[in-house]
């Protein structure tokens, strides 16, 4: 029997909630509503009478080859950064989970990049990857023309993925490490006494126990990679060469803020928002079924 807590006054709960709701409204619903309205109009940059054009903005976007190119770029970027930074984050966490000497130093060292702002990191990495004067220029001295992100779209994509991963690995590392350390030693020791080797223990014991962490990180990484990446790409390639590294969120910025086409940019935001919602929902529906949350009955209920 649940104990019900009721407010005596009718308006008090609403008054207590109001500041929260106001903030959410001002910073989320209002701009989103504005974007939704703009996506059905042609909006002059400095304001004034906007023309209602129905679905034209969406039609123009879906008919444009560059938009689909940006969608493919986004998929490649999102998939690669998610996989690489999850795998590396997990790997580092497994290593750090062992009782090494100087562990605190390793941990701090690995967490550090997370404190670096994306544009700042991108500036540094840009020098490193620069094909003639940067460290990667050495490759070109040995094999001329082997590395040129200024002109080669594939190289440019590898470059921005690498930097984005460098930034997000640490985030995953922290979560994985916390997940690993939450596993009781007694369980691992019991398994070891039963004769399970490290590989066996990993797949049958550790992995199932950290799977909620894993799931959370997949959802976060996919969502983040759709929207982040902006800072890195803005500094390093501006979506180029050609539009080889132009991902959806960068195209939204460019069309809206550089091109001053607020309407097309809004329509693209609406599409992207829908896409992220659908993707996250799909993940919850498909993957979450397989997750066992320790300490609740969610797993058994199904």
């Amino acid at each position: 029997m649940l104990k019900r807590v009721l407010f005596e006054s009718r308006w008090l709960p609403y008054a207590l909630l109001a500041p929260q709701i106001l903030i959410v409204f001002v910073f989320f619903y209002w701009p989103t509503g504005q974007a939704l309205f703009w996506s059905f109009t042609l909006e002059p940059p400095f304001g004034g009478a906007a023309t209602w054009v129905g679905l034209r903005n969406f039609g123009d976007i879906l008919a444009s080859g560059e938009y689909w190119q940006a969608a493919v770029n986004t998929a490649v970027f999102a998939l690669a950064t998610t996989v690489v930074s999850l795998v590396l984050g997990l790997l580092f966490a497994i290593f750090a989970d062992r009782g090494l000497r100087g562990l605190a130093i390793y941990k701090t060292g690995i967490i550090w990049p997370y404190a670096v702002a994306a544009p700042a990191a991108a500036v540094v990495w840009q020098y490193i990857f620069q094909p003639s004067v940067g460290y990667f220029g050495i490759l070109n001295l040995v094999w001329p023309g082997i590395w040129n992100p200024l002109l080669n779209g594939t190289h440019a994509m590898i470059m921005v993925i690498a930097v984005s991963c460098w930034l997000s690995v640490t985030f995953n590392f922290v979560f994985f490490l916390a997940g690993l350390q939450a596993i009781p030693n007694s369980l691992v020791e019991a398994a070891a006494l039963d004769g399970a080797g490290p590989v066996r223990r990993w797949f049958d014991l550790v992995f199932p126990l950290i799977s909620p962490t894993f799931f959370l990180l997949i959802v976060l990484n996919v969502a983040i990679s759709f929207t982040e990446g902006f800072g890195v790409i803005h500094v390093m390639t501006q979506g180029g060469p050609g539009n080889a590294t132009e991902i959806l969120v960068y195209k939204i910025y460019r069309d809206g803020f550089v091109g001053l086409d607020f309407s097309s940019s809004s329509a693209q935001s609406v599409i992207l928002m829908g896409l992220v919602v659908v993707l996250t929902l799909t993940q919850f529906l498909l993957i979450e079924r397989k997750i066992h949350y320790a300490g609740d009955d969610k797993g058994t209920r199904r």
Binding site: L151, G239, G240, P241, G242, V258, G259, D261
Partner: peptide, 21 residues
Amino acid sequence: GNYVEIRNIITEELQKALTGD
């Protein structure tokens, strides 16, 4: 109109010619 963006588009397409695509 939209000339800033148009310049970006032309540059972008010429970059593709530069790589020989």
